[in-house]
Nucleic acid binder design. Structure first.
Length: 502
RNA sequence: UCCUCGGUAGCUCAAUGGCAGAGCAUGCGGCUGUUAACCGCAGGGUUGCUGGUUCGAGUCCAGCCCGGGGAGCCA
């Protein structure tokens, strides 16, 4: 294996020269005297052509024996060819088999989600998943770059914690040398301590929630980025959040064009979000929007368009089903694909029609003091075409450490960033309470064990300052930027209800 | 925990209560600078599990298991 390796993403440098590629057979098509190998090497894919006349018998036999995902080392001349998908292909002169793969389960055909999740370790090799992981990587890199360029220090909060941070959500309990310990649900409180040491910090790590959520937005293990800044108030916090988000989106749009194209991502909304200046609306304004006549009309319109769409789709379905019988092979595949799309859309419409009355009730009957649910967030974001920031929530529904508005004790200085296109909350944060006495009162009100927060209260005894921060959900951000239906595709090995393998 | 939809060949799906099928994948043969290639032949099944109704159950009923979507909770 001492041969110098060339990577597929740098093939243009080797035009009309010999090169050696090492990788896996993504797909193979075979003719009488030609074998077409689609090779993938992690950087991309390249078609390699083995012509029986150009190679000796053992190379030809090796080429014809290849199966999907067999590993090979392949040498040949790199040539430009417009018949090739990425402009270049390889005319093979030598081919060495590293291993012949047996019955690779993920064929280049359709598969259901259950099967794909069971084969997640292999699914990661598929093109869409490959593109998603590269966007995820770009997002991670951009986040680090944004904070590092601004003098933030990355620090790590512990994963084992002795107490539940907010006392609200369900945590994973572990046995820590015969003592109860929980997997962290947030690094925030520790982030505050670290910000008092370094001024501007951010954490970047996994967090865990044991809630039995079965939705497209939830994982039990997910990655969160939590900046915390001393002397920042709520407004400065919101500016930081939107500048970061705009920076990340700009980087992805600039550097991951090919991957977004592979994902068929319509970038209209992303383009609008690459510059900051997102709308900031108060919780009170959000309630007004949700209970407005305009919202009533919007909901009616949603229901009407879905009711009208249904018969149109059913007619199309009947027509192409009729055509299917005598259709040729290629057309048959097209029809089957379209039928699948129609069935999925019809299921969606049915579900929406069931849900719209619930959404309507939730939105139109919303009263000041109620929390905003997932459907409320979606309806709110439909009024805008960039992310929005909703701030100034009722203090009662927020955590004990959140600072209250000095002008209005009922309002907490919290902020959520909601992504457009139905993706909902991607950031939650706010200004923290810096007064020792107020915090002591809140801890008592929330009936939390004051001993557990002794160190946290120390931060208010020794040079307490106003400070703010937020938590960014990495997987939700990836899902939105890639335009994915579910967060399970945004992380290599998702952990969710009932999923611990692979 | 609750609501809702589903589980049939390795995969994707079809089958009025009446002989369990198709396409893909696999194997063999043919054809072609092929693009999810194509054509022919072949092998491949405990219809999620347990029980019930019935002359007869993939289909109907009950319970359980597993999965999809949603509520709550949140990033």
């Amino acid at each position: 294996m001492s041969t110098k390796t060339t990577y597929i993403n740098e093939l243009e440098k080797f035009e009309n020269q010999q090169a050696t590629l090492k990788g896996w057979v993504y797909n193979k098509r075979e003719g009488k005297s030609l074998v077409f190998i689609i090779l993938r090497d992690g950087t991309g894919t390249c078609q390699c052509i083995v012509n029986q006349q150009d190679v000796n018998e053992s190379v030809w036999n090796a080429a014809t024996s290849l199966t999907q995902e067999s590993s090979i080392i392949i040498t040949g001349k790199v040539v430009e060819d417009e018949r090739s998908a990425n402009g270049y292909e390889m005319h093979v002169s030598d081919l060495q088999v590293v291993q012949i793969a047996q019955d690779y389960p993920i064929t280049p055909k359709d598969h259901g989600i259950e099967f794909l999740m069971e084969n997640r370790h292999l699914w990661l090799r598929s093109q869409r998943q490959w593109a998603i992981m590269r966007v995820r990587n770009e997002i991670i890199y951009a986040i680090h770059k944004f904070f590092q360029d601004r003098g933030f220090i990355q620090m790590d909060a512990p994963i084992f914690t002795g107490n539940a941070v907010e006392g609200t959500s369900t945590l994973f309990e572990t046995n820590y040398f015969d003592e109860k310990a929980y997997l962290t649900q947030s690094g925030q409180l520790y982030g505050e301590a670290m910000a008092m040491a370094h001024g501007k910090i951010y954490t970047f790590g996994p967090t865990f929630r044991a809630e039995k959520s079965k939705t497209r937005r939830h994982l039990t293990e997910f990655w969160m980025i939590e900046p915390e800044v001393a002397f920042n108030d709520l407004d400065m916090n919101m500016s930081l959040a939107e500048e970061m988000m705009a920076f990340v989106i700009d980087r992805v749009l600039t550097r991951r064009v090919a991957e977004l194209a592979m994902l068929d991502r319509d970038t209209t909304y992303l383009e609008k979000a690459r510059k900051h200046g997102y709308p900031r609306i108060t919780y009170t304004e959000a309630i007004d929007i949700l209970t407005s006549d305009k919202m009533r009309l919007l909901l009616e319109e949603m229901e009407t368009t879905r009711r009208e769409e249904e018969p149109v789709l059913k007619t199309e379905m009947a027509e192409i089903e009729k055509e299917h019988g005598q259709a040729k092979k290629g057309r048959k595949l097209q029809i089957e694909k379209r039928l699948k799309e129609i069935r999925a859309r019809l299921d969606e419409i049915e579900e929406d029609l069931r849900n719209i009355p619930v959404w309507r009730k939730s939105a139109l009957e919303k009263q000041w003091g109620d929390d905003l649910g997932g459907s409320d967030e979606t309806l709110l974001t439909m009024q805008f075409d960039t992310p929005i920031m909703v701030y100034g929530y009722p203090a009662e529904i927020k955590a004990f450490y959140m600072k209250r508005d000095p002008q209005n004790d009922k309002v907490a200085l919290g902020v959520d960033m909601l992504a457009p296109e139905g993706y909902g909350e991607i950031i939650g944060g706010g200004q923290r309470e810096e007064s020792l006495q107020v915090l002591l009162d809140r801890i008592e009100e929330h009936q939390l064990p004051v001993e557990a927060f002794k160190w946290y209260l120390d931060l208010r005894k020794f040079g307490s300052v106003p400070h703010s921060g937020f938590g960014l959900g990495l997987e939700r951000t990836v899902a939105w930027i890639c335009g994915l239906k579910h967060v399970r595709e945004t992380i290599p090995f998702p952990r969710m209800l009932g999923r611990l393998y692979p």
